[in-house]
């Protein structure tokens, strides 16, 4: 009797362990979901990480600050366009704040740059900042559920269905571009302008700029780029396509990225 019970317990224990572990392990092996991002990026050499990936699509953006400086209010137009299209709530309390794209002065956008008697243009410039859609995103490395992940085209996306709200990605992002839904966002979305085609978020998940994947799928430009019209303030496209406009812009201008020394290789470039 006793031996039987012991054997039964042994088998039961082992099969429980197998039952719990096997599906997870299989998922990992079969789907290989994490491979495009995490493993590929962690293996790249320091030199390679400074260069754009040579093959495939890599979406990016060039922001021409000269245009933004010339047209005051343009950045605000971009922000409104983005926040309306994505049903981003507006909170009165800064503690609850959610923002996908916003304006900051030079020192905040480019923290490591040092200047002595800063030139006048920089003095009152206001830089639009958004998710950098890094080629080597620390947030994706940190996420314990792959709720944030890098797509093949370089977009760092969020799966709000899966996010557990641990906010590890917020700690990992060196640019401060992620927001958390500290409370139910719905009451704080403008009912007159919300976008019926795009969902809201729920409380307890992290959100950020998605490079307008939903608009790209329809052949549209990102909302902020569209808001800039023909001004050329923002150029969006595949940086690996030698004939793209963004590639031309990158070739013709001296551009800088935010905090390049961290090796995240941002896909958003600034012309100053």
């Amino acid at each position: 009797m006793d031996i039987k019970r012991r054997q039964f317990l042994k088998i039961a224990g082992l099969s429980t362990i197998a039952g719990l572990g096997a599906p997870a392990a299989f998922n990992l092996l079969l789907k290989g979901e994490s491979s495009p991002v995490s493993f590929a990026s962690s293996g790249s050499s320091p030199e390679a990480s400074q260069e754009a990936a040579p093959t495939g699509v890599r979406l990016g953006m060039v922001i021409d600050q000269n245009v933004f400086d010339a047209y005051r209010g343009l950045a605000q137009k971009c922000i409104t366009a983005c926040h309306t299209v994505h049903n981003v709530p507006k909170f009165d309390n800064p503690k609850d704040e959610i923002k996908w794209i916003f304006e900051v002065p030079y020192e905040k956008a480019f923290t490591a740059k040092s200047h002595y008697h800063k030139n006048e243009q920089l003095h009152d410039s206001s830089f639009p900042v958004l998710c950098n859609h890094c080629d080597n995103p620390p947030c994706v490395r940190a996420c314990p559920t792959k709720a944030t992940f890098k797509r093949k085209d370089g977009i760092v996306a969020m799966d709000y269905h899966r996010c557990i709200g641990c906010r590890f990605c917020m700690a990992a992002c060196p640019y401060g571009m992620r927001s958390f839904n500290w409370r139910d966002p719905r009451p704080f979305i403008d009912k007159t302008t919300y976008n019926k085609e795009f969902p809201t978020r729920m409380r307890g998940v992290v959100e950020k700029c998605n490079f307008c994947v939903e608009r790209l799928a329809k052949g549209l430009q990102p909302a902020c780029v569209e808001a800039c019209g023909n001004s050329g303030a923002m150029v969006f496209g595949d940086m690996n396509d030698p004939h793209s406009e963004i590639r031309k812009k990158l070739a013709e201008n001296f551009t800088i990225q935010r905090k390049p020394s961290l090796g995240t290789t941002p896909s958003v470039f600034y012309i100053i």
Binding site: A24, N27, F39, S42, R141, T145, R162, I164, F168, R203
Partner: peptide, 23 residues
């Protein structure tokens, strides 16, 4: 207590992510 979506905590096991230190 710190999770925004505590009911989804088991997602960490459902979608195991070896590159995350939290995992």
């Amino acid at each position: 207590a710190d999770l925004g979506q505590p009911l989804r905590a088991l997602n960490v096991l459902l979608h195991p992510t070896p590159n995350s230190i939290l995992f």
